[in-house]
Write a protein that binds this DNA or RNA. Sequence first.
RNA 1: GGAUGGGUGGCCGAGUGGUCGAAGGCGGCAGUCUUGAAAACUGCUGUACUCGUAAGGGUACCCUGGGUUCGAAUCCCAGCCCAUCCGCCA
Length: 427
Amino acid sequence: MLDRKYIVENAAAVKQNCANRGVEADVDRLVALEAKRRDLLNQVQELNRQANEVSKGIGKAKDAEEREAHKEAGRTLREEKERVQSEHDELDKEITTLQSGIPNLSHPDAPIGEDDKSNLEIRTGQHAPPEFDFTPLDHVDLAEKLDLIDFEGGARVAGAGFYFLKNDAVLLELALTQYALQMLIGEGFTPVTTPDLAYTEILHGTGYIPRGPETQIYSIENSNLNLVATAEITIGGLLAGQTVDAEELPLKICGSSHCFRTEAGAAGRASRGLYRVHQFTKVEMFAFTLPDQSEAMLDHFCELECRIFDGLGIPYRVVDTATGDLGGPAYRKFDLEAWMPGRGDGGEYGEVTSTSNCTDFQARRLNIRFRRKGEKGTQFVHTLNGTALAISRALIAVLENNQQADGSINVPEALRPWMGKDKIGLP
RNA sequence: GGAUGGGUGGCCGAGUGGUCGAAGGCGGCAGUCUUGAAAACUGCUGUACUCGUAAGGGUACCCUGGGUUCGAAUCCCAGCCCAUCCGCCA
């Protein structure tokens, strides 16, 4: 959420930003309503002040008659205050709704464009896409041959989009998790495993909208809980309502969680197999920083993602995400797209990680502040998130890029210590 | 699931319907003393919003939401959360 005062004082810039991001938001109405709301707020405060004064005078009243007169005056003032207050509260609610619809500001260097076609490639990985002297299979066929994934079983139990990992795929998931966590711990992250459910307010705070018609979130009936779509939600919520000392920042946390997504309306070839599923495991990076640390932290996160995929020997490119493709909370976002030989005709890049600097957009909603020693008041922290490894999509890249002519899969060097083998062979 | 006890400032912890933004302690900051430090002593020390160029006013906030009252941290109702014990259980 952007700051109200900021929106009012920079309405033109905010409107331009909405246009760049392809977001419809009635900024003018917000500005008008906010002026009115302020006026009402002042009235409420003045009425309260008068009522307080009257109440204080009651003890000093010299006789019963005067006391009664004071009481009556107090009653009238409080009633009037109630009236103005409820008018104010209604406006406040509407403004908050408008405000929630306004996306974060955008980094001046973020490419301007309405969708991912405007994303700008900014770097590529150490490894070039592999040349096969045979026709490579996609991960669904590979998994079938090697008995690694049971999609039918998943569908039987929970419907399309669910799956059982099987045999060496299970070890691969654990190996990938270990590989990522070990690297991040080495980089000073505090590892956590997080709840897989979170309160609706926490989802809202991080910019997710559960329980709407277009929601991507599973909710638990008769409760205020939702299955999380990413550990970003729970780790961000970890400090909700807290004020931390500036010296404690930046705080780097990495978490492993399950991720649940309804993926309403998504189907087709591009989401075959593991690419778009309702549940997967993900190792997530998260940081709470001082405002002047967040840009460097975003580069750091991007760097780590590259290191993780270079370490796995997977070819990739990194794109600077266009304004229209940023999503609400992100100020700037880098996506890492891995080469998937089985995707499309002859291979395509597919998004495997995403790292965003959300500046104070999430922190404002979550009310996460920091205090500098010796300074009055508090400020909002900046939050950043980045995928270290989304296991399901990483599996696609690992399986497809490392397939051999004989149908086996070479286990990437970096995973061998955790896998206990260097080849996934035919059963 | 059952029973009980709780939710008060950065933390601990008191609080009789008005003088309570809230005792006291701890912590923090500044000062006195000291060669320096510690100790001791003295003073200061919440947040947000709002009015004001400023100095400085004002309003709100004692888990949340309602209610009673001229007036609620305090009384009433509902809810949420936490802790402990019992039961069940990985």
